[in-house]
């Protein structure tokens, strides 16, 4: 998230006028030593970020691993035709993805805002810092670890159900239960990332001018009205920024997380990313999978640009602003 905020000033920080006081050749002669330092990094970016983009051509091919990318026959748009003709598996994956996205926007997105407001209002620094370090921690765990922990607590033979059986109560099936799957995925994301998500909000809150609160309080505003008229407006640009980024990502929901726990059946668990993975690596439908991935990427980019446009219409900065 932080990346995109960072982008604007970074691009701007190269003042366009000044470097041209020296000629191109003179500058090359002066700076070649500096350029050498960028070579290894540029090579990595080129080979592992830009070259693979070419691999997307297999979306227009009937890719056969033994033929290789170049020898595989072209098939035009037929891989895409299958997607847009309403293939039930694609539609199901799309539906599951969107349902999970809506759940995450409704429950995962507001959680760090609320937590940041609570943390920000704490008077006693040591407690605040202790709570922060505890709540940041799950963010650094891999999904394998998080899923393993959830299984140990909520699984059929896990802590909760063992306890329930011990007490003679009917155990609750959570892991591997299609009805509980969406709630499980959503709560895992909340558990893992809520604490971490507060960082940006806390930074924004720390920059609110204290005099605004004093002025509001002189004008007779209680805590609730101060929250509404001072605190929340201060957070608005950040909320809009993160909202736009989330919208751009709405066709991706926790790929690694879901891939690890599809025991509840593909009917509810298959999302677009896992569809791509399964159809390519397990069923060998490379062309179709690549086409789905490509469409997903293009739609995601369009969503970000669109939402950004809408934010501009409402007078907000959004992710970037072209001047």
């Amino acid at each position: 998230m932080a990346l995109t905020i960072d982008k604007r000033p970074a691009v701007k920080s190269a003042p366009p006028g000044s470097p041209h006081s020296l000629g191109r050749l003179a500058r090359l002669k002066r700076d070649w030593g500096l350029l050498v330092f960028a070579v290894p990094g540029l090579l990595v970016f080129l080979v592992f970020h830009y070259v693979p983009l070419l691999g997307n051509v297999i979306a227009f091919k009937d890719y056969q691993p033994y033929l290789g990318v170049r020898q595989s026959p072209w098939v035009g748009f037929s891989n895409f035709a299958l997607i847009f003709s309403g293939d039930p598996e694609v539609l199901n994956a799309l539906k599951n993805t969107l349902v999970l996205t809506v759940l995450q926007v409704a429950f995962v997105f507001p959680a760090p805002i609320v937590l940041a407001l609570v943390l920000n209002s704490l008077m006693y620094e040591p407690i605040k810092r202790f709570v922060q370090s505890v709540l940041y921690m799950p963010h650094f765990l891999s999904w394998v670890i998080v899923v393993a922990i959830f299984q140990q607590i909520l699984g059929n033979a896990g802590l909760l159900n063992t306890y329930l059986r011990h007490k003679g109560i009917e155990p609750i099936e959570i892991i591997g239960n299609p009805d509980a799957f969406r709630a499980l995925i959503t709560s895992q994301v909340i558990w893992k990332d809520t604490g971490w998500g507060t960082i940006l909000f806390l930074a924004a809150l720390s920059r609110v001018d204290q005099e605004q609160y004093e002025a509001a309080s002189v004008d007779g505003a209680g805590p609730a009205r101060q929250m509404w008229h001072v605190t929340l407006p201060a957070l608005r640009p950040l909320i809009i920024l993160l909202g736009i980024l989330r919208l751009g990502d709405s066709l991706s929901v926790g790929f690694e997380q879901i891939l690890l726990q599809q025991g509840a059946g593909t009917e509810v668990t298959e999302v677009l990313d896992t569809y791509v993975y399964h159809h390519a690596f397990q069923q060998g439908e490379w062309g179709i999978s690549a086409a789905v991935g490509l469409v997903k990427g293009v739609v995601g980019l369009a969503l970000v640009l669109g939402a950004n446009k809408v934010a501009h219409l409402f007078g907000e900065d959004g992710v970037y602003r072209s001047r």
Partner: peptide
């Protein structure tokens, strides 16, 4: 410095997209 802007663009653009698992 020389070629500062294009190199920076190469870096920044990688944050906007990823090639996808199959490529």
């Amino acid at each position: 410095s020389f070629a500062h802007k294009p190199i920076l663009m190469v870096v920044l653009l990688t944050m906007l997209f990823s090639p996808g698992i199959i490529p």
